[in-house]
């Protein structure tokens, strides 16, 4: 379970992760306590599979979810189908209140660019709206959905080409910051007080 320098698997270099994320070394070590809890929920293997990810981060127990799949893929930067601690920490860093707005804009753009074409197309927006309504039990007519999407594209698609590119997305969210609300988890600031047991395993003095 441990490597030669006696650090737990996945937490080999907390200082490097702290330098490359918004978390401090202590916060990285506390985040590892959260990671251990999530990664042992179904299979205690030190890795987060999609089922554990869905249970922990979305509180839904359905077989398939468009957003769970998309968010999991964005966390899974090594495309292995499972998340190691480094991937988990780097992705969650974007959701920290202190993360750069540009990083949140980039992540949210990729989240909504379902087909990863470099732009968000109308059909993708409709698919996401229909999925959201279905998951939340809301029932809106197709006319109302089309109207919402029309209005959204009137606001966002300033180049009038039927799609939203990254520049248009950035302009839209800067005009409407509430669209990034789902990109910030305020409680990540409390990670060390929520998981104080990290101090028993800490191998570094934080600065």
């Amino acid at each position: 379970c441990c490597d030669l320098n006696n650090q737990p698997r996945g937490l080999e270099d907390p200082e490097l992760l702290a330098r490359e994320t918004v978390f401090s070394v202590s916060e990285i070590e506390a985040l590892y306590e959260l990671f251990k809890r999530i990664s042992s929920a179904v299979i205690d293997d030190g890795l987060i599979n999609k089922e554990e990810f869905q249970l922990a981060l979305f509180k839904i127990n359905k077989k398939e979810s468009l957003f769970v799949d998309r968010v999991f893929d964005l966390f899974d930067t090594k495309h292995s189908g499972i998340l190691g601690f480094e991937e988990f920490a780097r992705a969650l860093s974007v959701f920290h209140p202190n993360a750069l707005v540009d990083d949140k804009i980039e992540f949210s753009f990729q989240l909504y660019d379902l087909k990863q074409q470099g732009f968000i197309e109308r059909q993708e927006v409709k698919q996401m709206v229909v999925t959201t309504l279905a998951e939340s039990g809301m029932n809106l007519s197709d006319d109302v959905i089309e109207n919402i999407i029309n209005k959204t594209f009137e606001q966002a698609d300033t180049k009038h080409d039927g799609k939203i590119d990254k520049e248009e997305w950035k302009n839209l969210v800067l005009r409407h910051p509430s669209l990034l609300k789902n990109m910030t988890l305020q409680y990540l600031k409390d990670i060390t007080t929520t998981f104080p047991s990290f101090v028993f395993h800490s191998q570094v003095d934080d600065t």
């Binding site: 959260l34 809890r37 999530i38 922990a56 981060l57 979305f58 509180k59 468009l66 957003f67 998309r70 968010v71 959701f95 989240l111 909504y112 927006v125 996401m128 709206v129 999925t131 959201t132 309504l133 998951e135 939340s136 109302v144 109207n147 919402i148 999407i149 209005k151 959204t152 606001q155 839209l172 409407h176 509430s178 669209l179 609300k181 789902n182 988890l185 409680y187 990540l188 409390d190 929520t194």
Partner: peptide
């Protein structure tokens, strides 16, 4: 011709944000 229904106030991405929201709050409850 008058527009019949109420004006649409919600942006599609506000709606989508409801489903695409991560929720780790259960781990942070005191």
């Amino acid at each position: 011709q008058r527009n019949s229904g109420p004006p649409i106030l919600i942006n599609a991405f506000q709606l989508i944000g409801m489903s695409s929201c991560l929720d780790l709050s259960g781990f942070f409850e005191k």
